[in-house]
Amino acid sequence: MNELVFFINNVVIAGSVTGSIYAIGAIGVTLIFSIMRFAHFAHADIMTFGAFMVLLLTTAFPAVGASIGVPTALIMLPLAMLLTAALAVGIDKAFYKPLRAHGVKPIVMVIGSLGVTLMLQGLIRLFSGTGGQSLYVDDRKEIFRLALPFEGVRAPIVITEPQIYLFVITLVAVVALHLFLNRSRLGKAMRAMSDNPELAQASGINTNTIVAVTWVIAGALAAIAGTLLSLDVTFKPDLSFFLLLPIFAAAIVGGVGHPYGAIAGGFVVGFAETLAVFNWNVLLRPFRDSLPTWLELPSNLAFVGTEYKIVVPFFILVAILVWRPTGLFKGKVI
């Protein structure tokens, strides 16, 4: 049973955490793709930017949260979402819109977004330095240990405060997005434009508005994902490096242009990562006595070492491109 608890802590909880973060990031990527038809490489750095804004605000007013009883970083999140959304819209106006107006190929937009990536990285590092910093400036990170009411189980299930916030906020964000896309006039217009941009224009939908709304949503979601990740671990200026490949893999696994697919893809990639680095020997330990003696299990039965974690999203990406390039949920645009 202790082994099972270990499994829950290291796979179920850890996988849900990374899965949620990848899912929120992948939604942004997939929305941008479905409206503007290009892979937005700067997305992971927009996530980092959002987290950095929270860090700046939290460092500036470290004591705000204590009065209400939540981490200050969480109170600063809505403000950071606004700032990040504004940045995303601004980047579009300054860099992507002129390229779109020239009618360039989507791949040129991709290169443009790489340029934006570098600029954001340069800016963030210029101001933050290169080291890691905790978003818990003045607050304390609560850790909950839930002891299980079974006999012989000593290890508790461990979950931290930011992880609980992460699950709640992810759920709220997904439900809000669902309602927006299916109930609101603007959300339906967004889906319409992703379906058929010319017809959307012919119906009187202002495509510039939809583009701006897409950036606002993608930027705000990116700020959420970046902040929650930084809360869970620490803020690092090279966060994007660990995020870019997984969120693209998630978006493609789910079917590009498919927001719900992106959510599923995020969890697929997140769990695949945690399962791949999990040492399966732990689960086999209880059966050690019943195994034949000639079978000597090595102490490390993980598929890949943590240092090769990046192989996992790549492997998933290649596998899906080979067997089902439209993704699990039949993406629209290939």
């Binding site: 860099f95 443009g112 790489l114 934006v116 570098l118 600029m119 990285q121």
Partner: peptide, 9 residues
């Protein structure tokens, strides 16, 4: 880094 990014765009 900033300059390289700017140059690309």
């Amino acid at each position: 880094v900033l300059v390289i990014g700017m140059l690309i765009t």
